[in-house]
């Protein structure tokens, strides 16, 4: 007979589930199952609390053996959503309601991609470079202050941000899906990509410098054309920007792997040094 009583997860179990994800989402990473085992360990406390008999537990855990991989910080929201869905499935009886294996896995598969896209540009592309950028400035004289600043700020934001995502996902349940991949989700992603693009531009201009040492000198040894100055008078940082666009073009339009692009840069550097375009000007 179907069990119709409403089941609610305890705060303690949700905390446990969150911490299992926070720590273990990638520890046993492989190319075949990236975050699948992290997901399993995170759902186990929830399944154990919701289902009393072994048979139902096994059935529930089977759901989470499907492949899973996303941007793990923001991806915490997905774990929160499934916690709430599992609660709904247990309340209706594991075999008797509209929430089943296909519902949960369809939702997980549907969210993985979009969340990875937002997460990579928001967390890895914007948040971390900005904190690192501030920290690098503080440490540029060899001071440990910047490193300590980064450790504290990133870990506080990372831990509490992920915690917020988990419990928000749990609270909203499947309602979160509309927000994440509907029209509003699309608008949010576009807005975030704008922030990401501008900050990455700032990071590039601040921290990357490609300079040429090419110059033309007249008979008396006085240089009348210093190429670097000419380029910078056209647009400051022009050469740096050109190299970045070149790397992007090679990877995005020519499908060349990052490692190959690095090898191409080695060749460019060698040729550049030979013809006198690049010269770091080093001596012992």
């Amino acid at each position: 007979m179907a069990n119709i009583e409403k089941k609610t997860l305890s705060r303690k179990t949700l905390n446990k589930s969150f911490h299992h994800w926070f720590y273990g989402h990638l520890t046993v990473f492989s190319q075949e199952h990236m975050q699948t085992f992290g997901y399993l360990t995170s759902m186990l406390p929830i399944v154990e609390e919701l289902y009393d008999n072994k048979e139902d537990q096994e059935k529930a855990m089977k759901t989470y053996t499907a492949f899973f991989n996303t941007e793990p910080q923001l991806g915490t929201v997905i774990v929160g959503i499934t916690a709430s869905l599992e609660e709904a499935r247990a309340s209706q009886g594991i075999d008797d309601g509209e929430v089943d294996d296909a519902t949960i896995n369809g939702l997980r598969a549907g969210l993985m991609g979009p969340i990875a896209g937002i997460g990579d540009s928001l967390v890895v592309g914007t948040l971390i470079p900005v904190i690192l950028g501030i920290a690098l400035g503080m440490s540029s004289g060899g001071s440990p202050l910047g490193a300590i600043f980064y450790i504290i700020v990133w870990n506080l934001l990372g831990y509490f941000g992920m915690r917020f995502a988990y419990f928000k996902g749990y609270e909203l349940g499947d309602k979160a899906v509309g927000i994440l991949i509907g029209a509003q989700g699309k608008a949010i992603r576009k807005a975030i990509a704008t922030i990401g693009g501008m900050v990455v531009g700032g990071v590039a201009a601040t921290w990357v410098t490609v300079k040429t040492s090419f110059k033309l000198t007249n008979g008396s040894g006085k240089s009348y054309l210093v190429l670097q100055n000419q380029l910078d008078s056209v647009y400051p940082g022009l050469l740096t920007a050109l190299f970045i666009v070149l790397c992007w073009w090679l990877m995005a339009k020519k499908n060349i792997s990052p490692i190959r692009v690095m090898l191409i840069l080695v060749v460019v550097a060698l040729v550049g040094v030979l013809v006198g375009f690049f010269n770091p000007g080093l001596t012992y």
């Binding site: 990509a193 704008t194 990401g196 693009g197 501008m198 900050v199 990455v200 531009g201 700032g202 990071v203 590039a204 201009a205 601040t206 647009y235 400051p236 940082g237 740096t240 920007a241």
Partner: peptide
């Protein structure tokens, strides 16, 4: 956006 950010900084 990338070049606007780049210009702000450079």
């Amino acid at each position: 956006p990338f070049f606007v950010g780049f210009t702000f900084a450079a």
